[in-house]
């Protein structure tokens, strides 16, 4: 019981930080290239701990993003669910593959994510050119190795602490 509570504190705080980063005010230039932080962190936890962070987490996180950003309720939740589903399906194959390969997969997942946001925007009548969605996608992919490294450290530190 105490173990599960402990193992949830660190992941939960990484989700919080991702949410904060996704709405913290920045200059216009930085806003245009802001990577989808919650999606990156979600992908990470799905790949390394699929038995704990799955579709329910994705749903909750997506709804939090929607509420915070004032987007259509369910838009980010839907996109997040789809990439998490892919993550759950392929995590066994991805967990041990080299970083270059996971980065390509993450690019694919973020592409799907951004495309769904773009598509829902289009259906809802809020047209944003897809060209403006490229930069977050590219920056997000480039940041993946960094996210992987940082979150790996947090997770290992956490596990070491619990085992002691």
């Amino acid at each position: 019981m105490r173990d599960t509570a402990n193992t949830l504190v660190w992941p939960a705080s990484t989700f919080m930080i991702a949410l904060i980063l996704s709405v913290v005010p920045m200059p216009d230039v930085a806003v245009a290239i802001r990577p989808p932080w919650p999606a990156l962190v979600m992908i990470y936890w799905t790949l390394v701990a699929p038995e704990r962070f799955g579709l329910m987490t994705a749903m909750a996180l997506g709804l939090a993003v929607d509420t915070l950003s004032g987007a259509l309720l369910g838009q980010n939740a839907f996109a997040m669910l789809i990439i998490t589903y892919f993550g759950l399906k392929f995590h066994l194959r991805l967990r041990f593959s080299p970083i270059s390969q996971t980065t390509i997969t993450v690019f694919g997942m973020l592409l799907v994510y951004e495309f769904i946001l773009f598509w829902v925007d289009g259906v809802a009548g809020r047209t944003v050119p897809f060209s403006e969605r490229w930069m977050p996608l590219l920056i997000g992919t480039l940041l993946w190795p960094l996210v992987l490294e940082v979150l790996d450290r947090i997770r290992k530190h956490d596990q070491a602490r619990i085992e002691v």
């Binding site: 259509l72 309720l73 369910g74 939740a77 839907f78 669910l81 829902v120 809802a124």
Partner: peptide, 19 residues
Amino acid sequence: IGLKFLLLAAISLGFMVID
């Protein structure tokens, strides 16, 4: 997982439509 996914996806789609 597939069933759960379909259920949650349907809920979020429903949210979007209603919203």
